[in-house]
Each structure stands twice: as C-alpha cells, then as structure tokens.
Design a binder for these strands. Structure first.
Lengths: 213, 213
DNA sequence: CCGCATCCCATGTGATACTG
DNA sequence: CAGTATCACATGGGATGCGG
C-alpha cells in the first residue's frame, strides 16, 4: 500500500498507514465477527460508497490484513491471522469510544456486527465466570442477536434462538451498559422491553456487560 | 466536532469520529509522553501542515481529549484524563504496527516521542520484574533517550544521563526488538554500537523490550 | 521567534450511474 | 451481486504571510 506517508518510522505511523484510512477499521471490525461477502459489508456500512469499499478491500488485501476467499461459487472476505491481531486494538478503541457515546443522531443505525463488537468490548469475563451460563436473545434496533455467556466465554450470533431472557431495546441500551440506568428502571421506563423470561435476568446482563465512563 | 459521520451508532464509529482524522492519533501519541508546545508538536511531526495541526488541536480540544494549559507565559497542550485513556489503544496499535515495519524509507525519521511510545509498546513488564534495575542511554537516529527500568516499571526520558549501558543505533534496532537479530550479532554487525558499559547488557535490553511478528 | 491563518493545488472522498 | 466509471466537492499538503 505505502499510501500516504507520515514521514516517521515507528509502530503507530506504520499502523496508521495500513488501517488509518477512512472506513478501514470499520471493515475490519465487521470481519472480526466473521467472513463477509461484498454485499454484506456494504449492507453493514450503509453510508460507504461502493468505490470506497472496493478500494479499501483492495488496499487491506495488499497489506495482508484480509484475503478474498472463494466459498462454493461466491467470494467472501476474511481476515488473515495478522488481520485478526487487530482485535485488541478494535476492542480498546470501541471501549474508549463507547464512553463518549451520546444520544444517537437521526440517521445513525445499529448493525448486528457493530452491536456484536460493542458487546465484546463491554464483556467482563471475570464477572461472567462467577455467574451461571445464560443465553440472551436481544433485539436492538435492526439487530437480532443471540448472546450466549458460558463461564468466561462469550459467543454472539446473529438471529434468534432459545434464550433464558429475550428482550427488545433501542440505542438507549447504552445507558444500561454504562450503569447510568439500573436494570429495573430500564424495564419500568420501557427502554428495555422483556419479551420472554424473567426480567430479573436483566441484572445479570448488566453486570456481565458493563463499560462505565 | 461531529465532523464526518459514519451513520452508525456504536463505540468504534464514535471513536473514529473523535480521533479517526489524519494525524490525530499521532498528536495524541506525542502528548502521551508529556505536555508539548505547539512548536514541539510541529517539530515531532515534520510533515504535518501547520493549518492541519491547528485544526486538529482545536477539534481534539472540543472533543475533550486535550486542553490548552498556560504554563508560565507559554501555552502547552496536555491530555485530559479522558485523552489519557487512549493509551491502551495507542499501545495496542503501536504493537500491531511495529510487527509490520519494514526497512525505513529515505525520508522517514525517528523522533524521541515516537521511539518512547514504541518502547512502551514493546516493554514486557513481567520479564523486567525478574531482572535487576537497569538504566540505558540510547541514541537512535535523532532521538536521545534515557531508559530506566526498575522492577515492572518503565521510565523513558529525553536526553542523556548516567546509564549502565550506553549505545547508538539506527532504525535497524527494530530487528533487535523483533528477535530477528541476536544482541551479540547486533553488536558484531554494527547495528548497535556500544558507547559505554558492558555489551552483554544488550541481552537484558532485548529481553526487556520484545515484540515479535 | 512562536502560534497560528491564508492561499492554492493535488488528492481522496462521496453520490450516482453503469457494467459483466 | 459484485464491483467500475465518472465527476463534483471536501480535505490534505506545502508555501507563505502575519500579528503578538
């Protein structure tokens, strides 16, 4: 790539040369959830122009961060091992940015992949380790996620499924994760709507996923 | 700021809105080493145009990441507590990018602040904890650094001073830190020139600072 | 001199249209 | 569906200017 140069020799300038261009880290974020087709990426990044998506995919590929892989007649993009090493960076960045979230603007949407990575960033494995295994089915905006916590491991999948607690919420779920809003209050005020299961399990959810300013 | 929008609501898009613009993270990196004046920042970022530096400083200030602080007649820029929380992000990014470093291009320089943060990223505190306290005086390119390791704590200062080992090196010191080049070979081949002290201490340096692909 | 602001041009980006 | 092509525009880069 060797695109735009910062004139410096060091780890950070080098990283920014590789993934510092606009949209690049969002593409990597979505691919950290799993391999994606071109159209799936475009769908998850609604405002990216197609020429930019194509250009970034080419650059990230040349940088050895992702590869095009043929999967039974269709092509998917997947991270290379080196690309997957960006996970700590993305999680740290997401945790930091999460704390600066304000109320969503009109046009801002929540995608399944973005929600998945935010949950990973907010996941407190040491807390979860002391809690019983739990499955949550969450609908947040457009995103339908099946969240399974078992010991200190977290698995987030798209779609629905059997769960101990099923709930729907809007972007205000951020207030639950930040601790700004207690679980009981979240239900009372309608920020979270319990669809199935004991609402008390939302306490467990809030202690498992927490990211405070 | 609310500059360019990604149309998504989440931690990572939010972070990129705040520090995703070109040069922003390099400014934060230098300020993580310590407060800096406008001219010092410009000196450490040789290729940044002055209008961009001024614009970024204003944006980062409005985002609550840094503040202008008057220090006895002159103004310095320093990180706010929230800005300092970017340190894990910068270190993770630097560690990742370090592994992708190739041979330096002609115009690429090493600045004291960039070298300092790279050393912090490569520092293995658990290794250092088992080694005797050591002070290194390193001259790498333009940068003169005094590196003091004591237990699991690391302190890097600009300038010279008393040290157990003083050495000079070029950008190829990367090969020492990546493990590509053994300390003894580094001295033999002239990659590292020992100025003072026992060359054997370079072994200790290499185990203290290590970042392998 | 330091701390910017202004100007101009090259390049990257964004919206739309289009093609294999 | 998976991208290219085109073109208007915003941003970045480099030189220069300028007030305190």
């Amino acid at each position: 790539m060797a695109a735009r140069d910062y004139g410096q020799y060091g780890g950070i300038p080098r990283a920014l040369e590789l993934v510092g261009e606009r949209w690049a880290l969002l593409i990597v974020r979505d691919l950290l959830v799993g391999p994606r087709r071109y159209g799936e990426l475009a769908e998850g990044l609604p405002r990216i122009p197609s020429n930019i998506l194509a250009a970034r995919l080419k650059e990230l590929q040349e940088a050895g961060i992702l590869r095009r892989a043929p999967r039974s007649r269709v092509i998917v993009y997947e991270l290379t091992p080196y690309g997957r090493e960006l996970e700590p960076v993305i999680l740290a960045l997401g945790a930091w940015g999460f704390k600066a979230l304000e109320d969503p603007r009109e046009e801002q949407i929540i995608t399944p992949d973005s929600m998945t990575m935010d949950l990973r960033a907010a996941f407190r494995s040491h807390v979860a380790a002391d809690l019983p295994a739990t499955a949550y089915a969450a609908r947040v905006g457009q995103a339908e996620l099946l969240i399974r916590v078992d010991g200190s491991s977290l698995d987030v999948m798209r779609g629905d499924g059997p769960a101990d607690l099923a709930f729907a919420a809007g972007p205000d779920i951020r207030r639950l994760i930040s601790g700004e809003l207690a679980p009981s209050r979240a239900i009372e005020t309608g920020v979270v709507e319990v669809l199935h299961g004991r609402g008390a399990l939302l306490d467990r959810f809030a202690s498992t996923f927490h990211l405070a300013a």
